[in-house]
Every structure is written in C-alpha cells, then in structure tokens.
C-alpha cells in the first residue's frame, strides 16, 4: 500500500538527516579542530584538545539535541492526536513550564546534591502536575478552553520559576530565568545525557504504544472505546499518554530548559506527508523534532558571538509563524 511506503521513505529521509546533522554538529563548532585527529585521539584514549572538545562538549550536545527534539516532536504529535487539537504542544500547554519549575526547584535548592537523578525527577513531578491540572481544567472543553488553560498554566509556572530563582542563595540564579523559559544546550555534559535518557526512553515507548488508539480516537472517544481501547482508568490510554509525556518532557526540560514550539511545528509540517493518520505521524515527528533541534543548535553556535543565543529563541522564530497560521485557520473554519 502506498501510504505505508511513503511513511517508511519519510522516516528514512528524516533519519538520514538526523545522522548527517549529528555528524556535522560534531565537526562544526566555534573553533576549527582536526576532526579526524580528534576521533583518532578518542579511539586511542588520548586527551588532546580536539578529543576533549568533540567527546565532552559537542557529543553530549548533539545527543541531547536528538533526545530533546525527539521528545518534543513526539509529545506534540501524541498530545495533538489525543486532544484532537493541532495546537496542542508541551510548551503551549504549560507542560514544559511545569517541568522547568520542578527542575528549578531541585537544581537551585541543593536537592540535586542528594542525587543527580533528583533533577529529572523534579522535572517529571512538575510536568505531571501540569498535565494533570490541564486535563482536569479542560475536560472536554475544546480548543479555546485548552489554549486558555495552557496560557494560564504557562504564565503561572513561569512566575513561580522566577520566584524560586529569586529566593535561592546563588547570586547568579535570577539571571538564569532565560535558560529555563527559552532553553539551551550550551555546556551540557554526559551526566545530563545519562540522567535524561531513562525518562526519554520510557516516555517515548509509552507514547508510541498509544499510536493505534490515537487512530481510533480520530472518530471520537466513543468510537475508540467501542473499537476495544481502554481510554480511562489505571491502564488506559490517557494514563499512558500523560505519564509518557510527563516522563520524557520532564527529563528533557530538566537538562535543557523549556524549548518551545518544536512540538507544534514538526507535526504540523509532517502531517500532510503521513496521510493525516496520527499513528503514522509519531515516528516522523520524533525524527523531525531531533532534526529541527540539531539544526537550530548549529545555527545558535554559528550565529552567536560571545553571548550565546538561547535555543528557544530560534525555535520560537520558526514556530510562532506556524502558530499564527494555525490561529488564522481556526478563525476561518470557526472550529
């Protein structure tokens, strides 16, 4: 059948893009280094300047771009499918904001000294609270209620984040609000990769497992349930999606800050290429998210001289126009 082959082709193209951009982001940075020599050094276990730059600075950064972008793209696609609303995005709905609040509460208060895993757990707790509040507020409320609830939740979480940053002892904390609200991958370490990984893997698997149910949901909740899917309850789809999104977004935001619009833009661009079928959109959205973030991070590294541009600024520059287009479409159709 054609759509299946198209999706496969799309996945292969996106994957190839991710591989190429990852390679480029290892080679291309602020300083010119001999990459082949650096790779040789890494393999031989020598700590030359090039080896350190590639292994300790550029590699974790590229891996995090793949993980964070994939998570945001996938959770955008899943939330849009589940809420049957193309404007659903972890950033717009305040899930990322909640995660940032949770992570900030752990990072600056010294709870992280207890265990590094406290950081993603803080992000998870914040994201989970945000999703639960959101689902409770919205119910079957429709697009307007969803967006209002998301806006309220985001600004509330941002205010609390600013408050926490003002109250904590570090004199630098209050200047770091931009990192948490806009996101950045600068100077991340392999520790960040490791603490982010379990949540990302588990969360993504949970969300991918909901693919078939998302298809069934296109015709409404009653049809989905009559087709044999459990939506509510402990093992229901809702729990899986909420937990999956909270796990992965929480872990990612804990290390990268809240990078917006990836979950909005990527599914929006890829949806026509997947026949508008939610389950087909999931893997391409994850790959597309990785691709977008890798690309954005490369631009950030090249453009910024001295003071580094926040990654979220770039994704917002790309994403906000899509948001505008969506709003205009919403006005036209009136739904």
């Amino acid at each position: 059948m054609k759509p299946d082959r198209n999706t496969l082709l799309l996945n292969i193209v996106l994957l190839a893009g991710v591989v190429v951009l990852s390679g480029m982001s290892l080679v291309w940075g602020e300083t010119r280094i001999m990459v082949w020599q650096a790779l040789g050094d890494i393999l031989a276990g020598r700590h030359g300047a090039g080896a350190i730059i590639v292994e300790q600075l550029r590699l974790p950064r590229a891996l995090l771009a793949i993980m964070v972008g994939g998570t945001l793209g996938l959770s955008g696609a899943v939330l849009q499918g589940y809420l049957r609303n193309p404007l659903a995005d972890p950033g717009i709905l305040g899930v990322s904001g909640g995660a940032a609040l949770g992570a900030v509460s752990v990072f600056y208060t010294g709870l992280m000294q207890v265990s590094v895993m406290a950081l993603p757990l803080g992000g998870l707790a914040g994201a989970l609270c945000a999703v639960v509040v959101l689902m409770g507020l919205v119910g079957r409320g429709g697009t307007l209620v969803l967006l209002l609830a998301g806006a309220a939740l985001s600004s509330f979480a941002a205010a609390l984040t600013a408050l926490v940053l003002n109250l904590v002892p570090s004199p630098y904390a209050s200047f770091e609000i931009m990192h948490w609200l806009m996101g950045s991958l600068t100077d991340r370490t392999f520790t960040h990769v490791w603490i982010c990984l379990p949540g990302v893997v588990c969360g993504m698997l949970l969300m991918l497992s909901a693919g078939r149910a998302l298809d069934a949901l296109t015709l409404g909740e009653d049809v989905a349930e009559s087709l044999g899917f459990r939506l509510h309850g402990v093992c229901g789809m809702q729990t899986r999606i909420v937990l999956g999104a909270a796990l992965s977004v929480g872990s990612c935001v804990a290390v990268s800050g809240a990078i917006g619009f990836v979950g909005l833009v990527v599914p929006h661009l890829l949806r026509p290429l997947t026949g508008y079928q939610p389950s087909r959109l999931l893997v391409p959205s994850a790959l597309g998210g990785s691709l977008l973030l890798l690309g954005a991070d490369m631009v950030v590294r090249v453009v910024s001289a001295g003071t580094e541009l926040q990654l979220g600024v770039l994704t917002a520059l790309v994403g906000a126009p899509v948001f505008f287009i969506r709003v205009i479409m919403l006005k036209r159709t009136g739904s």
Binding site: P3, R212, D215, A216, T218, L219, L227, S279
Partner: peptide, 10 residues
C-alpha cells in the same frame, strides 16, 4: 479503522 478489533492495521 473498523478492522482494528481484528488486529489489522494500515
């Protein structure tokens, strides 16, 4: 989608 209960997809 009506074939989902029989485990058939896409």
């Amino acid at each position: 989608l009506g074939r989902m209960p029989h485990g058939q997809m896409n």
